[in-house]
C-alpha cells in the first residue's frame, strides 16, 4: 500500500473515530479519569430540653440495685443539609470500679448496664426489657449498634410503634422531626456490690449519625 492510500484510510478512520469519541468518551479506557461526587454535608448536635447544648447527664443519687431513666431530655438534632440520618449508639467503658454488662440477665456484683430507646416521651422502665432473649437489642454495648425499626422483637433502641422520625431511624433535618429524644436507663450494680460514692465519668456514650 502506498503512502497516499494509507493517508486516505487514516483520514477516514480519524473522522469516524472523532465522531465515536464524542459520543462515547465515558467508556474509552484511555480517557478515564477519577471522578468524585459529594452529597450533602452532615451534622449532628446534642441538646437539652431548652435547646442548650448538652454533653453530660447527671443521673443523681441512686441506691445499689436501683435503675434510673433520665428525666431531663437528651435531644439528638440532625442539623444536616437535607440528609436523612440514622443513629448508632456505643459505650466506651471507663469505670475503674464497675463492670459494663453488655448482655441480658441479672447483674452480677459491681456490674452496671445502660439501655437506650428513641421516642418522644420518657418511657417507663418496662419498655427497656432486658430479661428476654431478644431484648438485648436495647442494651448499649461497646460494639456499635444501629437503631432499627421493625416488628416481632427485631427493633433496636425502639419500643412499640413510635411516630415517624421519633425512632432514630431515617430522621430528617426539618425543625419538627429533626430532633429525636434519647432515653437512657442506667441500672446500678446490685446490692452487695463493693462500689460506693461518686461515680463520675464512668462511661462515654457515643451517638453517631449515618446517612441513609
Amino acid at each position: 500500500m502506498n503512502k497516499k492510500s494509507l493517508a486516505a484510510i487514516i483520514a477516514a478512520t480519524v473522522m469516524a473515530w472523532g465522531t465515536r469519541a464524542l459520543a462515547d468518551a465515558g467508556s474509552n479506557p484511555h480517557s478515564m479519569t477519577l471522578t468524585m461526587t459529594i452529597g450533602n454535608a452532615m451534622s449532628i448536635h446534642i441538646e437539652d430540653e431548652t435547646g442548650a447544648d448538652r454533653n453530660d447527664y447527671d443521673f443523681g443519687s441512686m441506691q445499689l440495685g436501683e435503675a434510673s431513666v433520665n428525666s431531663g431530655i437528651i435531644k439528638i438534632d440532625n442539623t444536616s443539609g437535607g440528609l436523612l440520618q440514622t443513629y448508632q449508639l456505643s459505650i466506651l467503658d471507663t469505670a475503674a470500679g464497675m463492670i459494663h454488662k453488655t448482655g441480658t440477665g441479672a447483674l452480677a456484683q459491681d456490674e452496671y448496664r445502660v439501655s437506650a430507646l428513641f421516642q418522644l416521651n420518657q418511657p417507663p422502665h418496662a419498655s427497656f426489657d432486658v430479661a428476654n432473649a431478644d431484648a438485648d437489642n436495647d442494651i448499649v454495648t461497646a460494639a456499635v449498634k444501629t437503631a432499627e425499626a421493625g416488628a416481632g422483637g427485631n427493633e433496636r433502641f425502639v419500643s412499640g410503634t413510635p411516630g415517624a422520625g421519633e425512632d432514630g431511624v431515617s430522621v430528617n433535618d426539618t425543625d419538627t422531626l429533626g430532633e429525636v429524644s434519647l432515653w437512657l436507663r442506667l441500672e446500678a450494680p446490685p446490692a452487695g456490690s463493693t462500689v460506693s460514692g461518686l461515680q463520675s465519668a464512668f462511661a462515654t456514650l457515643f451517638v453517631s449519625a449515618l446517612n441513609q
Binding site: 477519577l34 450533602n40 442539623t79
Partner: peptide, 19 residues
Amino acid sequence: ARAVGLSTNFGNVWVANVP
C-alpha cells in the same frame, strides 16, 4: 453548658475510577 456537635462536608461521597 458545654456543647457537643460535629459537622463535615462529606455526606455521601462517590469516587469512581480509582486506580
